[in-house]
Design a protein around this nucleic acid. Structure first.
Length: 626
DNA sequence: GGCCTTGTAAACAACG
DNA sequence: CCGTTGTTTACAAGGC
């Protein structure tokens, strides 16, 4: 499929953030090393080459455009006369010119760049009046120029883009969705690049004009002089994926860009004690300048991509269900763009439940687990669903390690309940600690640090944490010099969830039989969610998923964070637990009684989302590195 | 329907 | 006394 190529290229973006996505790198709001583009290993890949070439192409194109654009007046002629060269703001907003090619290159992968150009062109077509025809043509020329360049490159074997990809570049881009961490990284890159290149100024481009003719520019109206409310609108217009429904933000303030004491401007996370300080910060740091507009624009792209991705994944789900002889229910929600005009984009909470076969046999069949899935698309309207009795994790799916690694930023910012049990989370927190031990308070902190969700209702979940610590034998309290710390007894933990058969036919049978009557069992739901998530979040893996996979027999495990220990056992550096312990844990099977209980078809995931396996392999090392 | 897991709530004790 | 930590019990919801 086309996904292959697209994701292949997008991977470059993904790889850049490996450092970021690693759980260890929770530089909580602290200094972000923006712009470290990951090409630490000084070799120049074809992709790098492409970037370079693209950069040149862009520059050339821009030069060309600028020369002629200067003659044009913007529709609203609102240019600010700061820079020698004035560019219609719509253009500034809509084209890569608003940031330097270097910046573009840094924040967007080649196909993204290309797609951007095309999308911008499309937008231009919509938004510019007929007067702008000439301008459009120039834009097209620019794009063509770039495409030609790409073509040339490809013919030279430097690029693996399909020649025909020009027209469908957007599609490629769509297919290669960015995961939350991607997005976050994107922001950081933009921010980082901007900050470092601030002095360079925008090569004669001044974007700090306002434009009333560009609808999308409303987003960019996040400007100092505008009070919070319009800002809120702006933010909603952007459909920020990680900032979903705001109702729960009241306690943190009334500003959608402000929450939990920090600035929620993408990639910012600056700490602000109060709203006043935040506003000040907003005005100072996020004024209407090229950086902000760039970020807004990227955010638009982000939202767009997420929406598109959602649609695609929905389609995929539809196809899967159809294939599995499920009643497709109403295909409607899948085929139509998720975000109706004007509707908050991330309406997935509507889409998914709808997309899933409505439980015909039992109205009680819960769909919430899926909705609470880690998927980005399920970020909205989740917090108010009330007590969650079941995580969809634990049993049937999501590897905490990989899930968290990939969606670290997402969970940090989105008020979405992580689809893991407390026990899993606690364990993960502890194992993530340098010496595999944490005090209660440190566990608390980990929760709040890692999950925006756990910044609310502290009494409740803290109680739950304590409850879990006490309840589960796998959590061992160790008296310490400075108090007590909690550790994980892996053996005990694994007892609770012994590895079962992986991708066994039984499972499949179960699944299918479960599907037979349309009542989705939780496993399947989770599988879908998981599958969707992994695809959504790690385009990197998509291309490999089919090939990789299935060669990790024993990991039909629900909570794949267990793999962390596996790795640890190899690499071994776990003061908390001996390597032996770790070595044993996986296959330890004692207390048959307990094992019995565990007829969880966890391995389903291995069948459905082989991606995860690779996933784990990938992010484990990063964990180890911390 | 019973059992199990999980989440939530709450009571309670120990401790600083 | 108060807050934190830790244990325990009870109950509800959901899955098997």
């Amino acid at each position: 499929m086309m996904v292959e190529s697209a994701t292949e290229t997008i991977r470059t973006t993904g790889s850049n953030q490996n450092g970021v996505s690693s759980l260890s790198s929770q530089s909580d709001g602290g200094g972000r090393e923006g712009g470290s583009n990951g090409d630490a290993n000084g070799e120049i890949s074809p992709v790098d080459l492409l970037h370079l070439q693209q950069q040149q192409a862009l520059q050339a194109a821009r030069q060309f455009l600028l020369q002629q654009a200067t003659g044009l007046s913007s529709p609203s002629s609102n240019e600010v006369k700061q820079s020698p060269v004035q560019v219609p703001v719509s253009m500034a907003m809509m084209t890569p010119q608003m940031i330097t090619p270097q910046q573009m290159q840094q924040i967007l992968s080649p196909p993204q760049l290309q797609a951007l150009l095309q999308q911008q062109q499309a937008l231009m077509l919509q938004q510019l009046g007929s007067k702008q025809l000439a301008f459009q043509q120039q834009l097209i020329q620019m794009q063509q120029l770039q495409q030609q360049h790409l073509l040339t490159l490809q013919r030279q074997g430097l690029v693996n883009l399909q020649p025909s990809q020009g027209p469908v570049a957007i599609q490629s881009l769509q297919q290669a969705a960015m995961c939350p961490t991607d997005l976050q990284q994107l922001w950081k890159d933009v921010a980082g690049v901007q900050s470092t290149e601030e002095a360079m100024k925008h090569e004669g481009l001044d974007l700090s004009t306002n434009s009333s003719n560009s609808t999308s520019f409303t987003a960019a109206k996040v400007s100092p002089q505008i009070p919070p409310h319009p800002l809120a609108n702006g933010q909603h217009a952007l459909h920020t994926p990680k900032r979903d429904s705001a109702p729960h933000e009241e306690h943190t303030g009334t500003h959608p860009l402000y929450g939990h004491g920090e600035c929620k401007w993408p990639g910012c996370e600056a700490l602000c004690d109060d709203m006043g300080q935040f506003i000040k910060h907003l005005n100072n740091e996020h004024a209407l300048d090229d950086r902000s507009t760039a970020q807004c624009r990227v955010q638009m792209q982000v939202v767009q991509q997420l929406e598109i991705q959602l649609a695609k994944e929905s389609e995929r789900l539809q196809a899967m269900m159809t294939h599995l002889h499920m009643r497709p229910s109403e295909p409607k929600p899948f085929n139509q763009p998720v975000n109706g005009p004007g509707s908050p984009s991330l309406r997935d909470s509507d889409v998914y439940p709808e997309g899933l076969p409505h439980p015909p046999t039992s109205a009680a069949t819960p769909i919430t687990p899926l909705r609470q899935g880690p998927s980005v698309i399920s970020s909205s309207s989740l917090h108010s669903v009330g007590p969650i009795r079941r995580r969809n994790s634990e049993k049937y799916c999501t590897p905490i390690a990989s899930e968290l690694a990939q969606n670290c930023e997402f969970y940090k910012n989105a008020d979405v309940r992580p689809p893991f049990t407390y026990a899993s989370l606690i364990r993960h927190a502890i194992l993530e600690a340098p010496d595999h031990q944490l005090t209660l308070n440190e566990i608390y902190n980990w929760f709040t640090r890692m999950f925006a969700y756990f910044r609310r209702n502290t009494a409740t979940w803290k109680n739950a944490v304590r409850h879990n610590l006490s309840l589960h034998k796998c959590f061992v309290r160790v008296e310490n010099v400075k108090g007590a710390v909690w550790t994980v007894d892996e053996v005990e933990y694994q007892k609770r969830r012994p590895p079962k058969m992986t991708g066994s036919p039984t499972l499949v049978k179960n699944m299918i039989s479960g599907l037979g009557f349309g009542s989705l069992n939780a496993n399947y739901q989770a599988a879908l969610a998981e599958s969707s998530l992994s695809l959504l979040n790690s385009p990197t893996l998509v291309s490999n998923s089919s090939a990789a996979s299935l060669n990790m027999p024993h990991v039909g495990h629900d909570d794949v964070s267990s793999t962390v220990e596996q790795v640890n056992s190899n690499g071994s550096c776990s003061p908390g637990l001996s390597p032996q312990q770790y070595g044993h844990q996986i296959h330890v099977k004692e207390e048959p009684a307990e094992l019995e209980e565990d007829s969880r078809p966890v391995s389903l995931m291995a069948t459905i989302t082989p991606t995860l396996e690779r996933d784990m392999e990938e992010d484990l090392p990063t964990e180890e590195l911390e």
